[in-house]
Amino acid sequence: MDIFQLQGYAYFGLVTLMVVILYSYIYHLYSSEKKGTKDFEKYGNMALNDEIDDAPVEKISKDEKK
């Protein structure tokens, strides 16, 4: 097997992997919001309420590792 064949397989494998990951990401985004476990749209408010004394959308709590 020469390097160009390897290149071909590597290319195909990686692209397939990336596509699977991308689609599972889409599935994750929409299903977790439908089930109500996550709310992604609230993050949009990070741009709107961005004064330094506004409450963060999700606060970093003291006891948690950053």
Partner: peptide
Amino acid sequence: LVIAFAGLVEILPNFA
């Protein structure tokens, strides 16, 4: 990783 792998697969093997 996502941005680097295109370069690896695409460019390197052709070099020699």
